[in-house]
Simulated assay, not measured.
Amino acid sequence: MTRFPPHPGPPTPLPDLDKHRTSAWLAGADPHPATVHAAWAERGIALLPLGPRFDAIRVPATRVHAAVHSDDLPTVTAFLRDWLAGPVIRDTRSASGPYYVLIAPNSPWNRPEERLTTHTFLGVPRLGHPVSTLTRWVVQPTVPGDLCDPAHLSALLMTAETLRAVEP
């Protein structure tokens, strides 16, 4: 099935109940969820351990932008929301900051992009409006357990490789 991105637009806000349940699910990746909630309240970002609830695939911005054929934030957001149908975080400290695609801990990944898992921490922003200058949600999770299918990410990255091969 071919997936086409919708027209770019602002992200759809999560209903409060889903936002609270999803925040609780994310915070539950840490053995001390109250510490995560406190970090979100104070700084807008918390370091969460990878492995228990989700892993992350670190994808260079150039690869994502090549696949989407744009570096325009609303365009990239709309495309990733439709194509990956799951949560994506972006390191916003620089224009070339990588994207982190959240996937299930035991899902297969056989591509060169780095998989971050157990014994690694990821800066995860608070759900809602961006407040951190370090990182932001590109696509927020919509319900507890909402994660990307790594097969969709793999297909997206192969698209970038194909486009690079055929462009002058």
Rank of each mutant, 00 (worst) to 15 (best):
T2K: 03
R3W: 12
R3K: 10
F4Y: 11
P5C: 10
P6W: 04
H7S: 14
P8M: 05
P8T: 05
G9N: 05
P13D: 13
K19F: 08
H20E: 15
H20M: 09
W25K: 01
W25V: 10
G28N: 10
A29M: 05
P31I: 15
P31R: 10
P31C: 12
A34S: 08
A34Y: 02
H37M: 13
H37E: 15
A38I: 12
A39P: 02
R43N: 08
R43T: 08
I45T: 04
A46G: 06
L47C: 09
L48E: 07
L50F: 09
G51V: 08
P52N: 06
P52T: 04
F54K: 02
D55V: 01
I57A: 09
P60R: 00
T62M: 04
T62P: 00
H65C: 14
A67H: 03
V68Y: 12
H69M: 14
S70C: 08
D71C: 00
D72Q: 07
L73K: 01
L73V: 13
T77P: 01
A78K: 00
F79Q: 00
L80K: 03
R81S: 15
R81N: 14
R81P: 07
R81K: 11
W83E: 01
G86S: 00
P87G: 02
V88E: 00
R90C: 13
G97M: 07
G97N: 09
Y99A: 07
Y99P: 13
V101G: 05
V101R: 03
L102W: 01
L102Q: 01
I103V: 15
A104T: 09
P105F: 08
P108R: 01
N110P: 00
R111E: 15
R111P: 05
P112F: 04
E113C: 01
R115P: 11
L116N: 03
T117Q: 10
T117M: 07
T118D: 02
T118K: 02
H119P: 04
T120K: 05
V124K: 01
P125Q: 03
P125T: 05
R126I: 14
G128A: 02
G128K: 00
H129R: 14
P130V: 12
P130Q: 10
P130F: 11
V131K: 00
V131Y: 00
S132W: 12
S132Y: 11
T133L: 14
T133R: 11
L134P: 03
L134C: 08
T135F: 06
R136Q: 11
W137H: 05
V143W: 01
G145D: 04
D146G: 06
D146S: 11
L147A: 03
D149N: 06
P150K: 04
A151D: 14
S154D: 15
S154V: 09
A155W: 07
L156D: 07
T159S: 08
T159E: 14
A160T: 06
R164N: 13
R164G: 15
A165S: 07
V166A: 04
